[in-house]
Every structure is written in structure tokens, then in C-alpha cells.
Simulated scan of single mutants.
Amino acid sequence: MELTNITGLKGEVTVPGDKSISHRSIMFGSIAKGTTEVHNVLQGADCLSTMDCFRRLGIEIEKKGDSVLIHGKGLHGLTAPDNLLDVGNSGTTTRLISGILAGQPFDSKLSGDESLNSRPM
């Protein structure tokens, strides 16, 4: 079996707005190099918490109509937040961002609302 070194991905996929996909789109766009444009990102509290966390990690995220532009800096382009990362009531944000933060060369702390903070994670 021959392995090929892939250096990029380009294309277009159209899917309906979805909370799970919105979280992951924001996260992948943030750790990718370059600008990612995502359409139909849900604007609910959980997805907004994810966007806010990545903004605090140094990622520029712009709302442009029904689209979101994420100016990613690569996996190791995130910067240490100046304060704790507030995940609100989003368990998805907490679980997924923890994996990304675990590989970063800085410390960070996550916290959420009373309900989220009482969950065993």
C-alpha cells in the first residue's frame, strides 16, 4: 500500500444547520491554517460559547450574514487565554475543546454555568 502525503483540502459541502456540525466547524476552522467560511452555523448559546472560547484563544471569527469566517492559525497557533474559558452550558464545547487544549504549550482553565460545573467530567 502506498501512502500519499496530503498537503491540503479544498472543496465545498452543503449541509443544513446543525449544532454538532457547527461546533466542529468552528473548531476545525480555528486549528486550520487560513480562512474557513462556514454557512448555516447555528447561533445558539452553545455554539456562541465555542466561538467565544476560540476568540479568547486568539482566533479571529467574523459573522458575515448567515456565514462565519474563521481565520485559523494552525493547530499550534492558538495563544494562551488571559482568563478562564467560559463554556456556558455546553458540554460539547467542554469535551471537544479539552482535547485541543491538552496538546497546547500553555495552561488553560475551563468553567461553565452551575449546571455544567456540577456534571462529572
Rank of each mutant, 00 (worst) to 15 (best):
M1F: 09
M1Y: 10
M1R: 10
M1W: 02
L3R: 12
T4Y: 10
I6S: 11
T7A: 10
T7K: 11
T7W: 07
G8R: 14
G8W: 07
G8D: 12
G8T: 14
K10P: 00
K10E: 09
K10A: 12
K10Y: 07
K10N: 10
G11F: 08
G11E: 04
E12C: 04
E12T: 15
E12N: 07
V13G: 00
V13F: 09
V15R: 00
P16T: 11
G17M: 09
G17Y: 09
D18H: 11
D18P: 04
D18W: 05
K19V: 11
S20C: 10
S20V: 13
S22G: 05
H23N: 05
H23S: 06
H23G: 02
S25L: 14
S25V: 05
I26V: 15
M27K: 03
F28P: 00
G29S: 10
G29W: 05
G29K: 04
S30N: 06
S30I: 13
A32C: 15
K33L: 11
G34H: 10
G34E: 03
G34N: 06
G34W: 11
T35H: 00
E37Q: 10
E37V: 15
V38S: 05
H39A: 14
H39W: 08
N40R: 12
V41Y: 01
L42V: 13
Q43E: 13
Q43W: 04
G44L: 12
G44E: 15
G44I: 13
A45P: 08
A45Y: 06
A45G: 05
D46L: 02
C47R: 01
C47L: 04
L48W: 01
S49M: 03
S49Q: 03
M51K: 06
D52R: 14
F54H: 02
R55N: 02
R56E: 15
L57F: 07
L57V: 14
I61P: 01
I61W: 02
E62H: 12
E62D: 10
E62Y: 04
K63P: 00
K63T: 10
D66H: 11
D66R: 14
V68A: 07
V68S: 01
L69N: 04
I70L: 10
H71I: 06
H71K: 14
H71Y: 14
K73G: 14
K73W: 03
K73A: 08
G74M: 07
H76S: 09
G77Q: 06
L78H: 08
T79M: 08
T79V: 15
P81M: 05
P81V: 11
P81W: 03
D82C: 05
N83L: 06
L84A: 12
L84T: 13
L84D: 13
L85A: 03
L85P: 01
D86V: 05
G88L: 08
S90I: 04
S90D: 01
G91Q: 09
T92H: 11
T92F: 04
T93Y: 02
T94S: 02
R95D: 03
R95A: 07
R95V: 13
L96I: 15
I97S: 05
I97P: 00
I97Q: 02
S98L: 07
G99F: 07
L101K: 05
L101P: 01
L101W: 06
P105R: 04
F106G: 10
D107Y: 09
S108D: 06
S108N: 07
K109G: 01
L110Y: 03
S111L: 09
S111Q: 12
G112P: 00
G112C: 09
N117K: 08
S118P: 01
R119F: 02
R119N: 04
P120A: 15
P120C: 09
P120T: 14
